[in-house]
Design a binder for these strands. Structure first.
Lengths: 74, 74
DNA sequence: TTGCAATGTTAAAAATCTTTGACTTTACGT
DNA sequence: ACGTAAAGTCAAAGATTTTTAACATTGCAA
């Protein structure tokens, strides 16, 4: 599949709302690479559930406040 | 898959709390196969973020009420 | 202007998730 | 006992996510 995921996110805003955290710093805290954070921010693909949990934890919010799923189709 | 994921879930309970929904019925509603639901229920692996969103929607709860992430050692 | 940190981007390989198909087991009703 | 639905399990193939490594672009400060 080459279609972008129907899931958007507010990671970029959350990073800057939290001390202008860089992609690298976020990547280090959630245990993925800088490129992975960049790709997720740009909705190239949506992360694993575990990565999503870690990101939400870093920012102290619920997963739903980081990722927005637009129930398309159906 | 080499190690079980540090994410557990309450799908089995939720299915039975919602009219004894079968794995097949849940699978149909979230767009995956029966084997995938079975594997997730048994924590063989954790699902994609999109699958997690769909499951939570079926049961009308937040992702955090379906999946529990135990922030273990990292 | 030059240098540097942050970010954007790509390709290939690795890891993980999902499907398909088949077979087994369990539980329940007749 | 038999038939059936639901669930457990497995292997191989397919799809998606992540890593690794490299190079390009942007913005800002000295």
């Amino acid at each position: 599949m080459v279609a972008p995921p129907p899931i958007t996110n507010t990671i970029r805003r959350l990073r800057f709302d939290h001390g202008e955290m860089t992609q690298q710093q976020l990547a280090d805290r959630i245990g993925v690479t800088r490129q992975t954070v960049a790709a997720i921010e740009q909705n190239k693909y949506s992360p694993s559930l575990e990565a999503a949990f870690r990101i939400a934890e870093v920012f102290g919010v619920e997963i739903g406040q980081v990722f927005q799923w637009t129930k398309s189709g159906s």
